[in-house]
């Protein structure tokens, strides 16, 4: 019991102190750009929990969800195809290295040309950024399949769909999850960036609007909301990872404890 208390204490002490310092240090602030935290908190519900929740936050999250989902599926499918064939892997490797090295936000102007400024463009931007971490990690994961397991599968004539599912995808899944985690943080960044260019809705759009209108407390509340969103999504990801990769973490931790 006291162990849990100590852990909660360690986890919460510093954040509480930091927020308290911010709260009191900014309490009497008259600086236009650094409003008191109390005012930022005060404008938060009016700013985000009213109509903006449906008008800005949900469209942003929907686009992120679609783009991220498409990138995951495409990345894993392409990664399996590329990783399981040595010639294809050799042909595509330098090309993929190059395409991955292009900073994803640079593609926004090009995708605006191709797909206009609508939702399609924003989803495409997210897909184009999230694809590479998933794809490259899947390729690496497929290549690193344990040869003993691969031989065992061949000996027992495990083929086709069952081989893909039980051997290849299972072996590659820790790497796929790593790629998916990297892709998520890229995705959030691109969600915001794509809305800063040309948009009529979305979180990034709203924050830029507040900035241009010099509504500084609202702008701060938007920055905080984006931060909270980033944290929330990474916590969600960790929960999903724990479920999906429970067997893997278990197999790594088990022998160490013995």
């Amino acid at each position: 019991m006291s162990g849990i208390l100590a852990r909660v204490g360690y986890a919460l002490a510093l954040p509480v102190v930091l927020v308290a310092v911010w709260w009191f240090a900014s309490a009497g602030s008259t600086d236009f750009y650094f409003p008191p935290l109390s005012r930022i908190v005060a404008v938060f519900p009016d700013t985000w929990l009213s109509s903006r929740l449906a008008d800005d936050v949900l469209p942003s999250l929907t686009r992120l969800g679609i783009g991220y989902g498409v990138a995951l599926l495409a990345g894993v499918a392409l990664g399996l195809a590329i990783g399981s064939n040595r010639v294809v892997a050799a042909v595509t490797e330098p090309l993929l290295e190059f395409l991955r090295a292009i900073p994803p936000p640079v593609l926004v102007p090009i995708l605006i040309l191709v797909a206009g400024i609508g939702d399609t463009m924003k989803v495409l931007v997210i897909v184009s950024g999230c694809l590479w971490p998933v794809l490259l990690n899947t390729v690496d994961g497929v290549r690193a399949v344990d040869p003993v397991l691969a031989d065992t599968c061949r000996t027992y004539r495990v083929r086709g769909g069952r081989r893909w599912w039980h051997l290849v995808i299972r072996s590659a899944s820790p790497r796929i999850v790593t790629g998916a985690r990297q892709a998520l943080s890229v995705g959030i960044i691109l969600m915001v960036i794509s809305e800063m260019f040309a948009a009529s809705s979305g979180l990034g759009y709203a924050v830029i609007q507040f900035k241009d209108g010099f509504r500084i407390p609202q702008m701060w509340s938007g920055v905080i909301l984006l931060g909270l969103l980033g944290v929330l999504l990474s916590v969600l990801f960790r929960i999903v990872e724990h479920r999906v990769l429970g067997w893997y973490h278990g197999s790594r931790d088990g022998p160490r404890e013995r």
């Binding site: 360690y10 510093l14 954040p15 930091l18 960044i189 915001v192 920055v223 984006l226």
Partner: peptide, 24 residues
């Protein structure tokens, strides 16, 4: 131990969230 949670919290804050702030 005392800073781990803070690091974990601050790290996923997307850097682009700071764009409006630094521009202002």
């Amino acid at each position: 131990r005392a800073t781990a949670s803070t690091v974990e919290f601050l790290r996923p804050i997307p850097s682009v969230a700071l764009i409006p702030l630094v521009v202002v």
